[in-house]
Computed example of a mutant assay.
Amino acid sequence: MKKLENKTAIVTGGSRGIGANICTCLAAAGAKVVVNYARNQEAAEKVVSQIVADGGQAIAVAGDVASAADVKKLFDVAEEKFGQVDILVNNAGVVHYKTMEVTTDEEFDRVMKVNVYGTFYGMREAASRLADGGRVINLSSSAVRMMLPTYGPYCATKGAVEQMTRSFAKEMGSRGITVNAVSPGPTETEMFLGNSESEKIERMRNLAALGRLGKVEDMGPVIVFLASEDAGWITGQVIPVNGGTA
């Protein structure tokens, strides 16, 4: 029997990058997966097609995690299609690399709404709708510990995610629900590479003890572990997955 057989998972921001790998890894472990996307339906359907071709079950569901109503809809659709939700992965996020001096109110609001409010909305919905013994896994960032210039607003959002993770773990423990965060280091995603100049990419590569950037394939297996019974005694933790970057 696969580790996550008969489990249902929602993955926000599951159409590309780390999120897509999380979806395929969860499905390979037996979970039925709700692949959330904000705009790129084609990419989300591609992830679903890959899962189905490999013998799994998945659906793509549109929704902006910055909207509480859209997050509620994710749970509604998941329950209608697959039954009670067992696993929530709050992966959706946006980056912001600017000094605080030139960051506009609108830019700050956007990164806060997606990264902090989106994670909060997911956890709030999970509090009443996740199955007993379920799993909540939030995505943070090793940038929180690196104190890099131009990362201030972004790190503020991920610091908030880590603190909410710890508090929510205490709130959900009586139902056997574990709540953890995974903290990737610099990773070869379209979002990171597309928003970073070559000098910065090389500098980040050299910071890792293992001498490379992370790959999306490095993340999914860790998520599967935290979602499984094997991780039943791990909660309220932030797990760095960064090759020794920070």
Rank of each mutant, 00 (worst) to 15 (best):
A44T: 04
A53S: 15
K32N: 13
A27Q: 08
G220C: 11
H96Y: 09
M219D: 00
V89L: 02
K2D: 01
C23V: 06
Q84P: 15
Q50R: 11
A20W: 05
V216W: 02
I239A: 08
V111P: 02
A31E: 03
E217S: 07
N6L: 05
K81W: 12
K7D: 04
G214A: 06
K81H: 14
I137T: 03
F82D: 04
I59R: 03
M1I: 14
V48I: 04
A78Y: 09
T157E: 00
N180P: 01
S141Q: 10
K170A: 09
G83H: 01
K113Q: 13
V95A: 15
E197V: 11
K7F: 00
A208N: 12
N6Y: 05
V238G: 06
E45F: 01
R175W: 05
K72G: 13
N21W: 09
Q84E: 15
A29D: 02
I87K: 06
T12Y: 02
V111R: 07
F192V: 13
T12M: 00
G17P: 05
V161D: 01
F168A: 15
A53M: 10
N36S: 05
I137D: 02
L74Y: 08
N206V: 09
F82K: 04
Q57H: 13
M100I: 15
H96F: 11
G55T: 07
D86Q: 07
P240I: 04
M172I: 11
I201N: 08
N242W: 06
D64P: 13
M100V: 15
P184R: 06
E229H: 13
T99C: 12
A169Q: 09
T104E: 01
K72T: 14
I137Q: 07
Y97T: 10
E45A: 02
K7E: 00
A66H: 06
E80Q: 12
K73N: 13
R145Q: 11
M172A: 14
T245Q: 13
S67R: 09
Q84H: 14
V179R: 11
A231E: 06
N40I: 08
G118E: 02
V65Q: 01
G152D: 08
G122S: 04
G220D: 09
I223L: 02
L148H: 06
I22S: 03
T189H: 00
R205G: 08
M1E: 13
G236P: 02
R166V: 06
I177Y: 05
L207I: 14
A143S: 14
M147E: 11
R205D: 07
M164H: 03
E42G: 14
Y151I: 10
E101Q: 12
L26C: 07
M123R: 00
D86G: 15
M100K: 10
G13A: 06
V222L: 08
E42W: 06
F82V: 01
A53L: 10
G159W: 03
M164F: 05
A126H: 01
A208S: 15
A9G: 03
N138M: 11
S198W: 04
K98T: 09
R124M: 10
F192W: 14
P186F: 12
N115S: 02
G176T: 10
E80Y: 12
K2M: 05
E106W: 08
M191S: 04
